[in-house]
C-alpha cells in the first residue's frame, strides 16, 4: 500500500484528509458513526471571541451540484469552546485538531487565537479571513493584501503554533493576498472558502436565503479550487491546504497535484456523513490506479 502521510507545517498527518470547518461541528455527530481518529485531522466550527447566533433562517439553498449557506458563524464563543467543546472532543479524538478562528477586528482575531494557542489539543490555527456571511469582518480582511497581512502579523505575534490563513476566492488577485500573508509570517495558506452566491425562489420572487446572499460550495466549485490552489501554491513557499468541492479520492489527488499539501472536505460531509471515511478508504485504490507510491511526492506535481 502506498504512503498516505503528509507533513503539514511540521506536524505529521496519517493522511491528508481534513473535514473543513463548518461542516463537521466539533466532531461528535460524526464520532457517533465512525472513529474520527482515522482522519488526518479536522478543522472545527469557526470560533469567534463572543458567542454568535448567526443569521436568520432560511440559511440554506440548494444549487446544481452544490449548495449555498449563510449560517453566519454561529458558535458558542471561544471561552465555551475551550471549557465545553474541547473537553467533549477529547473523548472521541486523540489527535491535534485545527482551530478555525474568525473575527471582526484585528484585536478579535489576536484575542481568540491567543486563547486557543494555549490549548494542547490544538495543532494549528486556521485563521478565516474569508467568511462571506458576516458584515464588517470576515471576508473584508481577506479581500485586501494589507488587511490580510495585518491580521496575520497580529496573530503570529501572540501565538506559537502554525498559523494557516484561510483565503476567499471572491477576489481579483488571490496570489497577491497569499503572498502578503506569507510575508507577514503565515505558516500556511488554506483555500478556497465559499464563492459568494445567490438563489431566487420563483414562487415568492424573493431570495431563498434570508440574508439574500451566501457562500456557494459543493462539487460545482471544484475547478475553481484547483485553479486557485495551483496559482497560490506556485507563488508561495509555505504549504497550501486545498479545498473546495472535494468529494472523492480522485479529487484529493487532483488538488495535491495542483499544489495542496493537505485537502479539506466540506459540503460533501453534509450530504454523506461518511464522505471523509470513504475517501480515506478509497485513496489506496486510486493511488494504485494512478501509480502513486507516496502522496507527499505528488504535491505540486503539475508545474
Amino acid at each position: 500500500m502506498g504512503k498516505m502521510n503528509v507533513n503539514l507545517c511540521g506536524i505529521e498527518l496519517d493522511n491528508p484528509i481534513i473535514p473543513a470547518s463548518g461542516t463537521f461541528g466539533f466532531g461528535y455527530e460524526f464520532a457517533e458513526l465512525y472513529d474520527i481518529n482515522m482522519l488526518g485531522t479536522f478543522s472545527f466550527k469557526g470560533t469567534t471571541k463572543d458567542p454568535r447566533f448567526g443569521n436568520p433562517t432560511p440559511r440554506i439553498a440548494e444549487c446544481t451540484a452544490g449548495m449555498i449557506n449563510a449560517v453566519g458563524l454561529q458558535n458558542p464563543g471561544v471561552e465555551k469552546v475551550i471549557s465545553e467543546e474541547l473537553p467533549k472532543l477529547a473523548k472521541c479524538f486523540n489527535k491535534k485538531v485545527m482551530a478555525n478562528v474568525s473575527g471582526f477586528s484585528v484585536e478579535d482575531y489576536a484575542y481568540t487565537c491567543e486563547k486557543l494557542d494555549k490549548c494542547d489539543q490544538v495543532g494549528w490555527l486556521e485563521v478565516n479571513v474569508s467568511c462571506p456571511n458576516v458584515h464588517g469582518g470576515g471576508m473584508s480582511f481577506g479581500t485586501s493584501p494589507a488587511a490580510a497581512a495585518e491580521v496575520t502579523a497580529a496573530v503570529k505575534k501572540v501565538t506559537t503554533k502554525p498559523v494557516i490563513i484561510k483565503l476567499s476566492p471572491n477576489v481579483t488577485d488571490i496570489v497577491s493576498i497569499a503572498k502578503a500573508c506569507e510575508n507577514a509570517g503565515a505558516d500556511g495558506i488554506s483555500l478556497i472558502n465559499t464563492l459568494l452566491g445567490m438563489r431566487i425562489d420563483l414562487k415568492t420572487k424573493k431570495p431563498v436565503i434570508a440574508n439574500t446572499m451566501g457562500g456557494f460550495s459543493g462539487s460545482a466549485i471544484f475547478p475553481v479550487a484547483v485553479r486557485m490552489v495551483y496559482q497560490v501554491a506556485h507563488a508561495v513557499k509555505i504549504p497550501v491546504v486545498g479545498m473546495g468541492g472535494v468529494s472523492s479520492a480522485e479529487d484529493v489527488i487532483e488538488l495535491m497535484l495542483a499544489g495542496a499539501t493537505a485537502v479539506e472536505v466540506g459540503a460533501a460531509n453534509l450530504i454523506d456523513p461518511y464522505a471523509c471515511k470513504n475517501i480515506i478508504e478509497d485513496l489506496p485504490r486510486v493511488m494504485e490506479e494512478y501509480k502513486i507510491n507516496s502522496l507527499s511526492e505528488i504535491i505540486g506535481g503539475v508545474k
Binding site: T23, F24, G25, E29, R59, I60, V71, I271
Partner: peptide, 27 residues
C-alpha cells in the same frame, strides 16, 4: 420545520433561538 443542510446537526443551517438556548431543528 426548517430548511436543512445536513439534517444531523453538523451545518447549523436550521438553528432557532429558544428560551433554553440555541437549538438545531434537525438535531
Amino acid at each position: 420545520e426548517e430548511r436543512m443542510g445536513c439534517g444531523f446537526g453538523a451545518c447549523m443551517g436550521c438553528s432557532c433561538k429558544t428560551l433554553y438556548g440555541n437549538k438545531r431543528i434537525c438535531k
